[in-house]
Design a protein around this nucleic acid. Structure first.
Lengths: 237, 237
DNA sequence: GTTTGACAAATTGTCAGACATTTAACTTGC
DNA sequence: GCAAGTTAAATGTCTGACAATTTGTCAAAC
């Protein structure tokens, strides 16, 4: 098999190289969403490598959600659409991994989360829809249930803040915050909430709901600061 | 070869399944950083699949930076340490891909970037070191050079804001903002700066440097708002 | 005309075995 | 003790085959 790749980078394996090349085509728009790549046999001929090598390259791309594969007559590898929604879990999982592997303490994680969220609240106050208020009202009601487990309380908290961020109406913000908030959920899950702590959080949530309803961004910022302090106190107690 | 995987999920291929299994081991701490995985042959025997399938699984993990491989006698697949620093490019590249593939307009991207960055400036004012001021001073000096290309001006802008965010002293924040700022760099690169626009940006940067130096967070927030408006005006003109 | 069923074709998924390449450790000769 | 060659272990690559899945085609039956 001819080595028409001999001019390539010397010290990377072929599957990386080929994956990189296809990735380029996707990034530059040569290949667009739902395009079908050539079959594995065609790719192996085109690049002068074996089918096994091509497959390894395709697996790399699949692991990054850049392509999907389908078997059968009309099957093959197709360029993924990669919506923000699809990228949520990937992002959150990476964030979670980074935080646990690097032993980030809960104070640092909280600080980051509230700092980012604080940046969104003015936009949220400006762009919020009624549906966001409805979601937040519903979650507050759940949070008032004293029989809720700490884990469920935390999950409801995430949903509440997710709605707050979504209210900003900016998909990029929602995506980034989803990572920040959901990525540190494992850490938050280790917090033990006493009833007094929960009451404090819930009343802050209610105040935030009202501020968002009347579109007072500056009030929301102040409340976020209170909430950050409250959460830190609870976490470190 | 026996099918001791027959109890697995039916509709996913084996390489996905095996990759998922190893990924679990890393996430749960069964495998920790720098641990060596069994060799490909051993893995193929252990899972009852061929070596080719194991390799595809390993390529998937490598594409997510979860493992690295080394050739030779003491080689093999090793669990990656995955520091925040290593995750920067991965994150920025995903952000960039999402933004281009979903045709996010420059206004939305800018809005997100400045909203997030605004959330950091109070922390930055609180925790900044002299080195951050030095970096920012240096970049401002570069930005005053009228012969600088738009692209270089933009790159210097990124470095300036990177220093601002790093001043907050929170690795989680730095990581997230790196994605936001560098991910939209391709979009920012399409902006044409007139000299008047550059002057406006530079004078805002100078004011921010001074505010950060004297640790006045609220002033920084105001300046960020000006900068956002200025950037949007430039971008949309 | 429509449905049904069998078959062919295309494509990915998996396997087995081989050889190439790289790297570290070991052995040997001096 | 040191240098050079040898060996062993591991990943990287190739080849050819077969299995599994999906769609299309075509003919026969109704």
């Amino acid at each position: 098999m001819s080595d028409n790749l001999s001019n390539a980078k010397k010290h990377t394996d072929l599957s990386t190289f080929i994956a990189e090349k296809i990735r380029e085509d996707i990034l530059t728009g040569t290949l667009v969403a739902d395009d079908r790549l050539p079959s594995e046999s065609e790719l192996s001929e085109a690049h002068g490598v074996s089918r096994a090598t091509v497959r390894e390259a395709l697996k790399r791309l699949a692991a990054q959600s850049l392509i999907r594969t389908k078997r059968g007559a009309t099957g093959g590898a197709f360029v993924n659409r990669l919506t923000f929604h699809d990228a949520y879990p990937q992002m959150a999982s990476t964030a979670s991994l980074l935080i646990t592997l690097n032993e980030v303490d809960i104070a640092t994680a909280c600080e980051a989360r509230f700092a980012l969220e604080r940046g969104c609240v003015r936009l949220a106050a400006q762009n919020r829809q009624d549906i966001h208020l409805d979601i937040m009202r519903r979650e507050i009601a759940r949070q008032k249930d004293p029989d809720l487990s700490d884990e469920d309380f935390c999950a409801s908290d995430v949903a509440f803040h997710r709605a707050l961020v979504d209210a900003a109406g900016n998909p990029v913000l929602s995506w980034q915050l989803a990572a920040a908030v959901e990525g540190i959920e494992p850490l938050m899950n280790m917090i033990t909430y006493r009833q007094r702590d929960r009451d404090a959080v819930v009343s802050l949530h209610e105040a935030m709901l009202e501020a968002l309803g009347s579109r007072v961004g500056s009030r929301l910022e102040t409340l976020m600061d209170y909430l950050r302090d409250q959460t830190l106190r609870t976490a470190l107690s």
